[in-house]
Design a protein around this nucleic acid. Structure first.
Lengths: 190, 190
DNA sequence: GAAAACATGTAAGTAGTTACATGATTCG
DNA sequence: CGAATCATGTAACTACTTACATGTTTTC
């Protein structure tokens, strides 16, 4: 007996559609601005390519969640979008929805480390150090955007700072485990 | 001037191919066993579907990195694989390679939280609690596999325990940030 | 005797990427 | 005046997923 066909209806939005909706709600009114804002703010836990954004804007406008108007700068074409009432409702509904909240991690560093017992001790130690340094670098990148999140928090937008703190804690935890393990390996080698 | 064309050569392996290679090196000799092992050990930072595994095994055998032999159980067909010398070298080379180590996180929870300033305070608090509970649940799942990693470490396979500790630490970090933020929000509401 | 686990494979579809394609405006 | 930034869009491709398809052996 055939299974029920994939339930993704035509009106259902992808996570990326919700990112577009959310970024417009924060004032990023053009496709270009959405991409910039994503890179400055949520890039460390969500990415979206330009090639997704423009079709998404078209879809969202078609289903009435956003409204676009031409707003050229000089003779350079440009289109500004704003949420409709339905769009704001859809965004809120998505955040309130009582469904499972996906979390996907794909970390080549952890993958390599997992298999590292096959490696010569020096190579394993070098890999561990490379993974530590990578995390340390990401931590520096997050610290660089912290002032902006602090400013937003002062202005009443608290949650970007929350996610940033989460990212920093998360990354710091990876650095810490790398360091404590490196010490243990060094102690074990003696 | 045209860009350099995509450098992925025919002989280059995908990350998933390396997972297959690595799992075989740890003694998972059939496609089925590889899938089981992935689910028990690295699922929280890497997934691979059955539909990827069997074609990958075929590719890896074609390029001489693994060798398969029929090993049926009764009349149920079954194929066992082992690394060739070239296969072991390729695995080690991949871990030693001095290239950037990709890290990809896609967290719908952080995404929703990022936009949560639009939400009514109660709804934002409820979302934060749902994200906290999700992380707490993942932490329990990781603790459940800890004994197995401990046993592997006793047997000289230290690195599975390293990656597990990393996972537990960063998951705990997310729980902690959720809790501290919930307190701050509650204090701010008073 | 039924359900769970073992075991392998493929077809069709989805979500996402990179690269191509084009051009205007601003800044140094 | 050249480079960086602003701005929009699409074509081709890749990786990955779900579901289909099938059958055996073990466990309760």
């Amino acid at each position: 007996m055939p299974q029920i066909p994939p339930p993704r209806a035509d009106t259902e939005l992808t996570p990326s559609d919700h990112v577009v909706l959310g970024m417009i709600s924060l004032g990023a009114s053009t496709g270009y601005a959405i991409k910039q804002t994503v890179e400055r703010s949520i890039r460390f836990f969500w990415t979206i390519s330009q090639a997704q954004i423009y079709p998404s804007l078209q879809r969202l406008e078609q289903v009435g969640l956003i409204r676009g108007r031409d707003a050229p700068r000089g003779r350079r074409p440009r289109r500004e979008f704003a949420l409709t009432r339905a769009g704001r409702a859809a965004l809120v509904e998505w955040m309130r929805a009582d469904e499972e909240i996906p979390f996907e991690l794909r970390d080549t560093g952890m993958l390599k480390l997992f298999f590292a017992d096959t490696l010569a001790p020096d190579d394993a130690a070098a890999l561990l150090e490379r993974v530590r340094e990578r995390s340390a670098g990401r931590l520096r990148a997050l610290r660089a955007i912290e002032p902006e999140a602090q400013r937003a928090a002062q202005g009443g937008n608290l949650h970007p700072l929350l996610t940033l703190e989460m990212g920093m804690s998360f990354t710091q935890a990876m650095v810490d485990v790398c360091e404590s393990f490196a010490e243990r390996l060094a102690a074990g080698a003696r």
